[in-house]
């Protein structure tokens, strides 16, 4: 499979169809992989793909404007099914046009939840939870697919939330508050959750703005609460559930639980699943006249 991808990547670069290919390469140690930018055809042999390829590469599509002097116009990207969902969502939000990217889809059986858990193979003990409920192991919308593309059955019913979300929902409100308070106590606002997110595409984040200063910059619990509520709210109906925010968190806070909870809300209330359609509007920038209003007096 990887040979087919490398060959295609070489062709694309040689024919100048793309300026750069973003993919995965071997990382600094045997358990890790790293994002890599391939610009020369002879470098394509660095490309790899296996269950260690956790990173969601579409986040670099947001940063493509930072490299104008390199003539980075059309981007080739190696994408798992979930990454393609992220790209689809970016297109739906007009952050990107379909023509700007060349998507090399890769079939993916799942990735590990954390590098430290890699022991040479993928198994139930180290597979990320998002992969268990994934319905895009075979990617949908891609320009190139290595080998024969099998028919994909996407009729499986929508599955509600990860068990942790349900665990938390089972607690009473005060306990839930205390849980988050305890977790957020560790947060020091490195903003890794923001920077790895493919959908945090603002040039200047609302937390970095000081006039007005909506979110306190210091990492006291008040400021941390405000930041994580803001972050989750800004991702309602946009988050495609890659779970990168939790993986990137150096303090190991499960910030994606918010996104997972809201994913359920959006699905139940508006029947919207992010990352499946380039044309459907994200739920919060549209409405139906008969939306649920049972919470309204």
């Amino acid at each position: 499979m990887i040979e087919a991808i490398r060959t295609q990547a070489r062709n694309l670069l040689e024919n100048k169809e793309v300026d750069v290919i973003i993919g995965y390469a071997e990382g600094s140690d045997s358990t890790r992989t790293t994002p890599v930018f391939i610009r020369k055809p002879e470098e394509v042999s660095r490309l790899i793909f296996d269950p260690r390829c956790i990173n969601s590469l579409p986040l670099y599509l947001n940063k493509r404007h930072e490299y104008p002097q390199k003539g980075w116009k059309r981007t080739g990207i190696i994408a798992k099914g979930c990454d393609i969902r992220a790209i689809t969502q970016l297109i739906a939000e007009n952050q990107l046009t379909r023509e700007e990217v060349y998507i090399i889809g890769v079939p993916c059986d799942g990735v590990v939840s954390h590098f430290s858990k890699w022991d040479g193979r993928l198994h139930d003990g180290n597979q990320a939870t998002k992969c268990a409920e994934c319905d895009v192991h075979t990617p949908t919308d891609c320009d190139f697919f290595p080998g024969e593309r099998p028919e994909v059955d996407r009729s499986a019913p929508y599955k509600v939330s990860a068990p942790q979300v349900l665990n938390l929902m089972g607690l009473n409100t005060d306990k839930r508050f205390d849980y988050w308070r305890q977790e957020f106590d560790r947060c020091f606002k490195c903003y890794a959750c923001r920077e790895v997110c493919p959908h945090c595409s603002c040039n200047i984040c609302i937390t970095d703005r000081t006039q007005p200063n909506w979110v306190d910059q210091a990492a006291h619990t008040k400021g941390v609460f405000a930041w994580h509520i803001t972050r989750a709210m800004h991702l309602v109906g946009r988050c495609t559930g890659c779970g990168e925010c939790t993986r990137a968190c150096p303090m190991d806070i499960q910030v994606d639980l918010f996104n997972q909870r809201l994913k359920d809300v959006v699905q139940e209330s508006f029947g919207y699943k992010s990352g499946y359609s380039q044309d459907e509007k994200p739920p919060l920038i549209t409405y139906k006249t008969d939306d649920s209003e049972d919470f309204i007096q």
Partner: peptide
Amino acid sequence: YYARRRNLAFRQLLDFQG
């Protein structure tokens, strides 16, 4: 209408927050 959708989600978010 937009406010209705937004607040529906926001309520659930605050609820999840505790």
